[in-house]
Design a protein around this nucleic acid. Structure first.
Lengths: 229, 229
DNA sequence: TCAAAAGTGTTGCGGCTACACCCATGA
DNA sequence: TCATGGGTGTAGCCGCAACACTTTTGA
């Protein structure tokens, strides 16, 4: 048993707010990088599974129980010597997708927490190598929407096809043809299941009320829904 | 700085031999699992980068310098408590693709090494959780061939289009239409560059001599070459 | 009655599969 | 000259993008 190292988990926690993809960042309360923004994370316990540690950190920082509506998956491991000034730290990064969140709660050792739209992440001047981890996580999310049904984890049930389309538009930063999008979604068995009901009245500018749906059992998309070139 | 753990790298080292995808396994010389087959790997040094540790282990076990013709990328990290009976060990797995290899050299702490075709991996009864790691690595390789030019790292230069096709057929375990395959490869700019020469005489059963090519500068495939359903 | 948004229909383009056919080579 | 395999041509199918059109709703 050779040299041992500290192992942490860091989470790229994503949601859709105000029509664009946003990540949860926390303001560090302790050195190093005190006062700077960073991805939520922490050390893995001696007998704790990596996935469990990621879920625990997620719950501590946001109050979200990932088992009830959400998605958590391993992203990549970052272990370059010198990435943490305290010593050798290997970080296993995770990506989490959650529906519209309650206001984030400040964690135990964080001085604050807020969502940052992904197109303003450079302003956050992230600590450690978290800018790179965040960029890798965002790209993973964008790619996953193409060939999985994960977009549905960003919306509350019941939802309409246009609600789902706005998720794709927010995450990819593009606008999609409503007609062709609906055909693709409805043409994939098990992606969404119609409830039979229509959305209640209350749309701001008028328009036909869309049909409502719930998440279906399918996880993969055949054929995929590809990003426009 | 909380609890520390041992960190290892394990390699899913793949090549194409006798028309099928094969992985390098080593026979363990020490406990635990002495005498059992396992993925090559070892502990990460205190000041060593993860990628560098993977390349070093690869060189020690096979004599291959990954910088000269080969591909190495991180696969995933496995850290479930109890996966190693010696204690808490977190393993960062890598996937490596190499051209036809010289006979593998027995490593310092391995009692033997040989290639196993992927369809006989169950017979190897791999140590630790290496069966799962190997399966994840094989699936990664199969998926990568669809949308990257990595298949060309399995062949020696110069190579013919049919050589490249046999790589796809070996990795995916299918047979492909030679005509359509050649069109897809030649229709992707930068995948292969023709040398102008033709293959030398010496084919066993006759037939026209195919044109020779080298690897091109492209890394991604647009459009992808998809596996048959 | 008008604007806005959901949903349906339709048409044209492009890629892909399957297969026929021609060319080069060794036995 | 025959079998084998590389390479080219072509016709049909399928999916998708684009966009016109109908329907439903709020103002």
């Amino acid at each position: 048993m050779r040299a041992t190292m500290a192992v942490t988990v860091d989470g790229v926690l994503a949601t859709v707010r105000d029509g664009c993809l946003a990540l949860l960042l926390v303001r560090r309360g302790t050195e190093p990088f005190a006062g700077r923004w960073a991805l939520p994370g922490g050390f893995v316990g001696p007998g704790e599974d990596l996935d469990a540690a990621a879920a625990r950190e997620l719950a501590e920082e946001t109050g979200i129980d990932i088992a009830t509506g959400g998605h958590l998956e391993q992203l990549r491991t970052y272990g370059t010597p010198g990435r943490d000034p305290r010593g050798r730290v290997v970080s296993v990064a995770y990506v989490a997708l959650v529906p519209r969140l309650p206001a984030p709660v400040s964690g135990t050792d964080a001085a604050g927490a807020r969502f940052w739209p992904v197109d303003r992440l450079v302003e956050a001047r992230l600590a450690f190598d978290h800018a790179r981890i965040a960029a890798d996580g965002v790209e993973r999310i964008r790619a996953k929407l193409e060939y999985t049904t994960l977009a549905a984890t960003f919306v509350d049930e019941p939802f309409s096809i246009p609600d789902l389309r706005r998720v794709y538009e927010a995450v990819w930063g593009v606008s999609l043809d409503p007609a062709n999008f609906a055909r693709k979604v409805l043409g994939t068995p098990g992606f969404v299941v119609p409830t039979g009901a229509r959305a209640p009245a209350g749309a701001p500018g008028g328009g036909r009320r869309p049909g409502l749906h719930r998440r279906g059992p399918a996880a993969a998309l055949h054929p995929p829904i590809l990003r426009p070139a």
